[in-house]
Design a protein around this nucleic acid. Sequence first.
DNA 1: CTTGAAAAATGGAGGGT
DNA 2: ACCCTCCATTTTTCAAG
Lengths: 153, 153
Amino acid sequence: MEELDNTDIHLLKLLGDDSNMTMKELAAKVNLSPSPVFERVKRLESNGYIKKYIALLDAEKLNHGLIIFCSIRLKQHDKSIGMEFVQDIMKIKEVVECYNVSGDYDFLLKVYARDMKHYQDFVFNKLGSVKSIGSTHSTFVMSENKNSHNVNL
Amino acid sequence: MEELDNTDIHLLKLLGDDSNMTMKELAAKVNLSPSPVFERVKRLESNGYIKKYIALLDAEKLNHGLIIFCSIRLKQHDKSIGMEFVQDIMKIKEVVECYNVSGDYDFLLKVYARDMKHYQDFVFNKLGSVKSIGSTHSTFVMSENKNSHNVNL
DNA sequence: CTTGAAAAATGGAGGGT
DNA sequence: ACCCTCCATTTTTCAAG
């Protein structure tokens, strides 16, 4: 596994914030010509530093005005119940993130919902049908103050 | 405000998962020629449905093996203290997300750290110097089971 | 929406430090 | 090892129908 030099880090920062820049533009920012930049970026991709390129969508415009962090306690704590829970939860489109965590609860979910009615339906009908769940606790997001969508290098 | 048809939704889904597809590839997936796809994508961008394009970086490879959700309770609950907190927290690079939330705590932070030692330093030296903070509670992520990095349409 | 063509970017070859 | 300057190919971008 190779080291990353300052130029690589610089490129990762730039692409992590805006991947629509051309090689030419990137090259200008790191004071190189397009070719070595092209090679560096391809290397960063194939070495897995860059996982993929995505478009960030506006959740609010796409009818997801509410963000909720939903803590989940399982009924039992064996591996098969945990795996069953993860499988069930993966199928629910409102759940955009899922973490197995330490502390009072076992899992933390980030959930997008249109509105309260939608969230209520999610809790009763979607979570309600996941048998492995013991109890839940909802924390509502009042405002998103920062989301870099990435590592901050 | 215009409506989105099924093709628009389809394009958003595709780009939300992989923005490196060419117009040609996108066109093939939605059964159109490149030109109308180009126009639709530009419209989705200028109407704000697509916010920006980014490269997703591998946090683990970039020396951020630990994810922590850090709950924060402020000393007082007036607006100026809250704004001061947000301003201070924005400057800390370990904090990748920050939400103002309901419930026992006022804010929820998502934090990336290299390891426990790094996190300890973050809590003592970085959070420790933010005067508006009353108390904190850390929830450690043991595994990330799902992160779509986007709305699920 | 389609065709089609100009402008621009990508991705290599070949050579220099 | 790393960079540069071309340049062919592909893609983007935008007319006009």
